[in-house]
């Protein structure tokens, strides 16, 4: 589904990703872990099409197509979803208007008619249940005044509505209380299917107890320096990153 080959990304001449190789197949869940500042969010943004990065080398193939040629909106319409680490507040744009516009843009891309108002509301109600999101939130402006946890739940809510093929969740677990973590994980698990894939960026093993990954990668200094199965996450939880850092830095 997703093939990243020797991807190098820089911001203002500073190289942040220094040759990423990653292959994600349909039905898989990949976890990406790694110390702060190692480039996890940069990778996620590059996949979603944020344009202040320069892709200086490599390829991103999504379902066989060159992703870098698509605008962020077309990537979304092709089924890519980014759950933001820091969802932005957009005062004055109501959640309802935002979600309706998003859904109908997706439908238009697929040459479907806009969703009738009644059906849209029904869909909202249905999906709200999955993330047990407070009704009140959808009456407000996008993320405005949402608590940290509410913002994260809102990301999963949007994911549930948009039904992506490839979801990239950037630290969706940070800031969630225990119950919310369970709810969010359930939400993600419900949306799992043999046709879909998920990339989970996280710092905590705990989330991976709920959403069991097929592969765990460690990103450090802009490279994937280690990959393994779910036991790697447990190892990191116990020993931290020092042993990996030492390995890598010794080879530098």
């Amino acid at each position: 589904m997703l093939e990243i080959k020797d991807l190098k990304v820089s911001i203002e001449d500073k190289e942040i990703l220094k040759g990423i190789n990653l292959s994600v197949k349909a039905g898989e869940v990949h976890a990406i872990m790694g110390p702060n500042g190692s480039g996890k969010s940069t990778l996620a943004s590059a996949l979603a099409g944020r344009d202040y990065f320069n892709i200086t080398n490599g390829k991103i193939l999504y379902e066989g197509k060159d992703l870098t040629e698509l605008s962020p909106e077309d990537r979304a319409r092709e089924g890519i979803f980014l759950g933001f680490q820091y969802p932005v507040e957009i005062p004055g744009v109501s959640m309802v208007n935002f979600l309706r516009t998003a859904i109908n843009s997706m439908r238009k891309y697929r040459e479907q008619d806009p969703l009738p108002a009644g059906e849209f509301l029904k869909l909202m109600r249905e999906k709200k249940k999955i993330v047990e999101i407070d009704s009140d939130l959808t009456n407000r402006s996008v993320n405005e005044g949402f608590s940290g946890g509410e913002k994260k739940k809102n990301e999963i809510f949007q994911m549930a509505l948009l039904e992506p093929k490839l979801a990239i969740l950037d630290e969706t677990d940070s800031g969630l209380d225990i119950d919310a973590l369970r709810i969010v994980s359930n939400g993600v698990n419900k949306l799992r299917s043999p046709e879909n894939a998920t990339i989970i960026i996280t710092h905590y093993q705990r989330l991976l107890d709920y959403i069991v990954p097929d592969v765990v990668h460690v990103l450090y200094k802009g490279r994937i320096v280690k990959s393994g199965d779910k036991s790697l996450a447990r190892e990191l939880e116990e020993h931290g990153y020092d042993w990996i850092k030492q390995e890598v830095d010794a080879n530098d």
């Binding site: 979603a48 099409g49 944020r50 344009d51 605008s71 962020p72 909106e73 990537r75 979304a76 319409r77 979803f81 980014l82 933001f84 969802p87 932005v88 957009i90 744009v93 935002f98 516009t101 998003a102 843009s105 997706m106 891309y109 996008v142 949007q158 948009l162």
Partner: peptide, 12 residues
């Protein structure tokens, strides 16, 4: 904010 909206499939 612009990127956020685009990332949900809304044209620029």
């Amino acid at each position: 904010a612009l990127f956020y909206l685009q990332s949900r499939g809304i044209p620029k």
